[in-house]
Amino acid sequence: MKGIFVACFLISHVVSAQKIYWEEGRKLNWSNFKSRVNNQRGANVVAYTNCGWSYSYVKSSNPKAPVKIKIETIFNEDKSWKDDKRINDYVLLHEQKHFDVAEVFARKLRKEVSEKIKTGADFDKYFKSVYSRILKEYQDFQRAYDGETKNGMVEDKQSEYNRVIAEELENYKSFRTS
């Protein structure tokens, strides 16, 4: 029995080590980018951040009972890549902002969920559409961010996005996880 517990503990530790949950003040570092495979196209791609959200919920079979929904922002270490020969602190900041953008939109999702989804019936009726809409906004923002900054190479645009992302984190601070 002891051997099974140790094996399960080691497996769960390895699995959890592949994801980083967004936390106020915690910054990514280059050792978090563990993928050896570059799936991105373009000569100016120096790194790739794979991030997004995970959610879980607890719902009763009673449609009038309250529902509990947990939304977390995650960075996937095993799917995030870097070109060791071209990385620097400036590129890392650009990649950190991708992770921060994921948190901004997770907060927007938490806000809308908290306002619209109180019961199991609300969850069944609204969650998929709310999630899909916020996800599309998130993906559009990430594409615009990389496009307008040319993956961080246009410094004035990068500075502008840094400001916007910081403001949005502040605007939605009441919807951060504790």
Rank of each mutant, 00 (worst) to 15 (best):
K2Q: 06
K2R: 07
F5P: 03
I11A: 12
S12K: 12
H13V: 13
V14C: 10
A17S: 15
I20M: 14
I20P: 07
Y21N: 14
W22A: 09
E23D: 03
E24C: 03
G25L: 00
R26K: 12
R26E: 08
L28E: 03
L28T: 01
N29P: 06
W30Q: 03
W30H: 04
W30V: 06
S31H: 13
F33S: 07
F33Y: 13
K34G: 05
K34C: 09
R36P: 06
R36A: 11
V37C: 02
N38V: 01
N38T: 05
G42Y: 07
N44A: 00
V45I: 09
V46N: 00
A47Y: 06
Y48D: 04
Y48S: 11
Y48I: 08
C51K: 08
G52P: 12
S54P: 08
S56Q: 08
Y57C: 00
V58N: 03
V58A: 03
S60T: 00
S61I: 02
P63N: 08
P63I: 04
K64D: 13
V67Y: 02
V67N: 03
V67Q: 04
E72C: 13
I74M: 15
F75T: 14
N76V: 14
N76H: 15
N76R: 15
E77R: 15
D78E: 14
W81V: 08
W81S: 07
W81G: 07
D84H: 10
N88M: 02
N88R: 00
N88W: 02
V91P: 00
V91C: 01
L93E: 04
L93K: 06
H94C: 00
E95A: 14
Q96S: 04
Q96V: 02
K97H: 05
H98S: 07
H98N: 09
D100P: 06
D100I: 04
D100R: 06
V101D: 02
V101M: 06
A102R: 11
A102F: 11
E103C: 03
V104S: 01
V104F: 01
F105M: 09
F105W: 13
A106N: 15
R107W: 08
L109I: 12
V113S: 10
S114T: 09
E115D: 12
K116A: 07
K118Q: 11
T119Q: 07
T119P: 05
A121F: 08
A121S: 12
K125D: 06
F127Q: 10
K128Y: 12
V130A: 09
Y131P: 10
R133Q: 10
R133S: 09
I134F: 05
I134N: 09
L135P: 05
K136R: 11
K136V: 10
Y138Q: 13
D140Q: 14
F141Q: 12
A144G: 10
D146E: 12
D146T: 11
T149G: 04
T149M: 04
K150E: 02
N151R: 03
N151T: 03
V154Q: 06
E155Q: 05
K157Y: 09
K157T: 10
K157P: 09
S159V: 00
Y161I: 04
R163S: 01
R163K: 07
A166F: 00
E167K: 05
E167V: 03
Y172I: 00
S174F: 09
S174A: 09
F175Q: 08
T177F: 11
